[in-house]
Nucleic acid binder design. Structure first.
Lengths: 128, 128
DNA sequence: CCGTATCCCCGGCGATACTG
DNA sequence: CAGTATCGCCGGGGATACGG
């Protein structure tokens, strides 16, 4: 019944293989989008399609360049995000979701729906 | 378009009010279940209904008593988890989801479904 | 059994400065 | 603009010991 977690935690993983994959599917998902930045990156890219680095950073709001870069890297490695660099001056790099990344939409949607209802409850005052 | 994050991050929040609630519903959800432990606690309780402390700890696997306690506390404060202590020797404390906590099921389900499909993809070898 | 209190470590994260 | 490097803080989280 127990879903053991692979030692070491969830963040900054490289691409999972069948061997190191947790038995529990929920944990598998946590393995790939287990921190808030990854979720927010996902949200932006799924909303706007293709975005440049700065654009992404500004739209997420309070995220440092370093953290954005590192999260984008790991999401590249896990196959969620596609990165395309253009040899221009000044440089331009565009990020978008891969097909795999797109499949996470239902998860995001569920989160969005819940958040909306929650706020509605709060507004109505009929919570708890 | 931007969904600014309330300063200070997501973890260990007290019960949100309309004022400190983020504009973006996805962030609202992250505010309440933004770390892996909270998700795993949710998974166990939604799966098995009511559980004692030790039971919960064992079924989650690698979680220390301290972390489990603290996460349960914050989930109590945010109204996701119900706690009931019995005046017995030895003590018995039972945890369960509140009605509000139950409403998070669709989010968990979406995560579960995605994790299953992902593993299926890996097995088939047709990923990326 | 359930919980709190300490101690301590490690990693996420921001700030800043510097390259192409 | 995009990215790397370095430094330092702070808090999550483990280990342990103790109390009710």
């Amino acid at each position: 019944m127990t879903c053991m977690i692979a030692d070491g935690g969830f963040a900054n993983m490289t691409a999972p293989t069948l061997e190191n994959l947790p038995a529990c599917p929920v944990e598998t998902t946590l393995l790939l989008i287990g921190n808030k930045w990854q979720v927010l990156i996902l949200r932006e890219l799924s909303l706007r399609g293709t975005m440049r680095f700065k654009e992404l950073q500004r739209s997420i709001g309070k995220i440092s360049q370093k953290v954005l870069t590192s999260n984008l890297r790991t999401m590249e490695e896990t196959g969620l995000v596609h990165r395309e660099a253009f040899a221009e001056v000044p440089p331009r790099v565009e990020y978008s979701l891969t097909d795999l990344g797109q499949t996470l939409r239902p998860v995001l949607d569920a989160m969005r729906v819940w958040g909306e209802n929650y706020k509605e409850q709060l507004r109505g005052g009929g919570l708890r």
